[in-house]
Design a protein around this nucleic acid. Structure first.
Lengths: 193, 193
DNA sequence: GCAGAACGCTACGGTAGAGTATCGATCCGC
DNA sequence: GCGGATCGATACTCTACCGTAGCGTTCTGC
C-alpha cells in the first residue's frame, strides 16, 4: 500500500476528526462544541463547516474513525480463543479514546438515531464474534450441544463491561482470564478431588 | 406513622422533584432544563429557584429521591438469597425511572462530583449487599473458604448490568436465576455422570 | 509563478438555557 | 378575615452555542 503525502485538505480533515474524538472522550458528546474543536485544533470554524455539514455528522464520523475491528483467532482451544477474543474486544472498546467515550456515547445513542445505529452495530458485532467462537466449540464437542450460547456470551461480556463502566477499573488480561475460566469451569470434566 | 396533609410548600417541592426525575429519565441530565421543568410541572421558574439554588442541586436531589434500598434476605439458601438480592437490585436500579436515568446519570457522574458520589455510593452499596450474602455462604460452608468474593460479585452483577445497559433488554427473574445458577454451578458438589 | 482552491479571521443572527428581579395574586395559619 | 409567607407571571441579563457570510491570506497543482 503506497502512502501518499496527504493533501492539506485531508490533513485538516483528519486533525478535526481527531480533536473531536479527543473532546468527546473528555467532556462527552453533548458538551462538545464546534467552537472548542476549532480553538483546540487551530482549524477555523468556517473550515470545519466546509468539511462537515453539522456537529451531529462530525461527531458520528469522529467516533466511527476510532473504532477498530478486533480479529477472531482459531487456535482450537476454547479457552485461548475466548481470552483472545475478549482481550481484543477490551483493547478495541475499553481502552484508548473509545473507552473514555463509551458512557457518553451510549447515552447519546439513546437520542441520536445515527449514533444509535453505530453503537448498536458495534455491540452486535462484538456479540457475533463471541458467538462464533462458542459455536465452533460446540461443533468440536468442547461444549455440550444444548448449551445456551446467548447466555454464555452475556456471562462473559457482562463482567467486563461492568468492570469498565460501573467500577471504572481497567479490564486487565487477568480479569479476562478469570472470567473465562469461571464461566467455563462448569463445562470442564469434573476434577478429581 | 402519622401522615399530615403536606403543606403547600412541600407539595410544590415534591412536584418539582418528581417532574425533574421524569424529565431526566426522558431526555437525560444535560438536556433537562429548568424552563421545561417549569412548564411541565406548572410551577413557576422563580418558585423552583426558591426551593433549589441551582439546577445541579435540583437534579441531585431529584435522583436521590427516587433511589430505594433493596432488602437483603437470609433464607439459609445461597441460591435463594442471591436471587432475592439481585432481583431486589434489579427492581431498585433497573426498573422504573431510575432505570431510564442510569446511562445519562453514569455519564453525568463522570463530570459532576456530587452526582459522582451519589452514583458511586449506590454501586458500592449494591456490591456490599451481594458481598454480605456471599460471605454468609462461606461461613456456612456453602462456598469454599478461598473463593474470590469480589470476582463472584462481578460475575453476578455484570451480566445483569450488561443486559440492561448494552442490550437494552429487561432484566427478568429468569435471567437473574440463570445467571445465579450458572455462576454457582462450579461450586455445587460435582454431579455423578 | 500563477490561477484556483482551501483556509483563517471576524462578525454576524438566532436560539436556548441559567439564574435574577419585580410585582401582583393566592394561600394558609391563627 | 388578616397578615405574612408562598407562589405565578413576566421580563431581563449573560453566556454558550450552532450555523452562515464575507474577505483577505495562504497553500498547491501545474
Amino acid at each position: 500500500m503506497i502512502e501518499h503525502t496527504p493533501s492539506r485538505s485531508t490533513r485538516v480533515r483528519q486533525l478535526v476528526l481527531d480533536t473531536t474524538a479527543q473532546l468527546v472522550a473528555e467532556v462527552g458528546v453533548e458538551r462538545t462544541s464546534i467552537d472548542e474543536i476549532s480553538s483546540r485544533s487551530g482549524v477555523a470554524k468556517s473550515t470545519i463547516y466546509r468539511h462537515f455539514p453539522s456537529k451531529q455528522v462530525l461527531v458520528v464520523e469522529a467516533v466511527h474513525a476510532c473504532t477498530h475491528i478486533p480479529v477472531v483467532t482459531d487456535t482450537g482451544s476454547l479457552r485461548d480463543d475466548l481470552i483472545s477474543c475478549f482481550s481484543g474486544m477490551t483493547k478495541a472498546s475499553f481502552e484508548g479514546r473509545l473507552g473514555d467515550m463509551m458512557l457518553s456515547l451510549m447515552d447519546a445513542a439513546q437520542r441520536d438515531p445515527e449514533l444509535g445505529r453505530l453503537v448498536r452495530g458495534q455491540a452486535e458485532q462484538r456479540r457475533r464474534f463471541a458467538t462464533t467462537v462458542l459455536e465452533r466449540a460446540v461443533e468440536r464437542g468442547d461444549l455440550p450441544a444444548d448449551v445456551d450460547i446467548d447466555l454464555l456470551v452475556t456471562l462473559l461480556s457482562g463482567p467486563l463491561v461492568y468492570t469498565k463502566l460501573v467500577r471504572r477499573q481497567r479490564v486487565t488480561e487477568e480479569l479476562v482470564a478469570a472470567v473465562v475460566d469461571s464461566v467455563l469451569a462448569r463445562y470442564r470434566a469434573p476434577v478429581q478431588r
